[in-house]
Amino acid sequence: MNATASPDTARSGSGTRATPRRIAIRSTAKLVVTEAKLFVREPLGAFFAIVFPAALILVLGGAMPGFTEPSADVGGRLPIEVYLPITLALAIGTVALVNLLNALAADREKGVLRRLSTTPVSPVRLLGAQLVVNVSALVVGCGLALLAAWGAFRITAHPNVPGLLIAFVLGAASMVALALLVAAFTPTGRAATGLGSLVYYPMLFAAGVWTPGPLMPDAVRRVADFTPLGAASQALQDAWAGDWPRPLHLAVMVGFTVVLGGLATKLFRWS
């Protein structure tokens, strides 16, 4: 408080004033808990983020003939095992372009970000809470998918774990950057959702959701290499097979994260 503040600033003279640090921690924790509640109260969104990846693995492995037998089409590996890293890429794309994007667009359209900017808490903190909640949901969803694959089909893989983590983190970062950019320049929630799905399906295609692993035509793969989710999917597949992700894919993901994220920061409108 500086000298220009009037004398009755401390009119409610409670003895134990919360320190700014304590307030920041408490309010941030409350924001995260609140966003988590809102996340699960959107049942369709929560289903696709958390349950769907595992359900997809179970359905493919259980119902598709030959999915759990070694197949010459995929170099003698189990198709389900080839499909698992693609499922992780699918989960990344869904959480970023559906869950996160819709939440951000709705908050802006409803003026929630604007209302927050009238309080001591910056809307940037809400954005941070959204990220924490959505990334947590993504991690849980992917964990469940891995658990389902291992529990139901006893998949034995020897992934390059650090490579897998790097691919996952960079893949998620580049897709979050893409979602932020879409949220940054779409004026309404509806426009954000529309543009989001316009980007979402090509991204899934690039990730190989419909043409997994070696089934993707070479020409398509060469284009897919240069998309964020395509690069993420390739990097996840390489690491899953025990190799390191290729420098090209890492560079593509870092590049998209920096460029799209930078643009989003510049363009983001808070109201």
Binding site: I23, S27, T34, A106, G111, V112
Partner: peptide, 23 residues
């Protein structure tokens, strides 16, 4: 014309916003 998230409950909004202030 400033709203709140559709699925946020009354008590949650008040509890959350009160946590932003020292007093």
């Amino acid at each position: 014309e400033s709203q709140l998230p559709d699925r946020l409950k009354v008590w949650e909004a008040l509890d959350l916003y009160s946590s932003f202030y020292a007093d």
